[in-house]
Write a protein that binds this DNA or RNA. Structure first.
Lengths: 152, 152
DNA sequence: TTAGATGCAAATAGTTTGCATTTGT
DNA sequence: ACAAATGCAAACTATTTGCATCTAA
């Protein structure tokens, strides 16, 4: 029952001694295709759209496992209710998220090496990675905002 | 029915045109005393211990208000279920999270203004905030790691 | 073959809402 | 005095659990 080619992360999953089940591979695939920014609710919907026989519990269990394996990480940034899961690529991770349309814009440079270094010295920690997210409005949503008004 | 001296943040609350109610002042006080790292559930308990007549709804409403006023911010700690609220000292938010013991170490400087500015120009976006998390081992956990091995 | 994973449905957390009442200014 | 905020309890949403069944290795 071969899925398609296994992603890097799927291999990590297997190497850590867990079974490569249909449910897990599907959940992982959905996360990867999504660009790596999903709430659990969005994930549930998308997984369900792909294969409606996969149960909610398995999605949550996968999310939990992936978190423990550092494949994914929950962040709370603008929904105060549902955590957003972000894919953790290898070294660092940074992008801009449009708070209006949720579009994700990647960028390469983050220039944090210097800061990382300084923090290691000053705080006496050993750092292995980081997550940097900027929040704001993308070009399109800035234009649409001229129509104004959706304050609370 | 004067509470004790008003904190800096309580003043901000008032200045923003909201009433200084008993419930709000109590919630704020509990957060400030706690060192500024609480889940909503912990907050509910502590508020209840101080004054059991304050209802859950008011606690959540305060949390919501404080978040909108940037007095507090929901963030990831290690429960994947309940957001943790941290006090926001100034404008932005950044910290180091120990991947072993989940300890959170705050730091002030992030030097991202320059980058933020550059991205706004280059990507044609309008940025309003950011989250910066470093992951690594705190001093204690580096030492304990000599004893190695506590995989799952 | 068999331990580990699953799907289901019911149980549990966590959060929000409507509304009559109270309170800060 | 009166708009804003509250407390309550019920509604809702999100997540977890127990267990019989299934499946990857």
């Amino acid at each position: 029952m071969a899925h398609q080619a296994l992603s890097q992360r799927a291999l990590r999953l297997r190497d850590s001694g867990h079974k490569l089940t249909h449910a897990r591979l599907t959940v992982l695939d959905v996360i990867e295709r999504s660009g790596g920014h999903l709430t659990s609710t969005e994930l549930l919907e998308k997984v369900n759209a792909v294969d409606s026989t996969i149960g909610r519990a398995s999605v949550f269990r996968s999310l939990d496992l992936f978190t423990r394996l550092s494949i994914v990480r929950p962040t709370y940034i603008d929904s105060s209710v549902t955590p957003t899961y972000v894919l953790l690529p290898d070294g660092h991770h940074h992008h801009v998220i449009c708070t209006s349309c949720s579009r994700v814009i990647e960028f390469d440079e983050c220039g944090l090496q210097a800061l990382e270094h300084e923090l290691e010295q000053r705080l006496n920690v050993r750092l292995t990675g980081h997550l940097l997210e900027f929040y704001g409005l993308c070009a399109d949503c800035q234009n649409n905002t001229q129509r104004d008004n959706d304050e609370d």
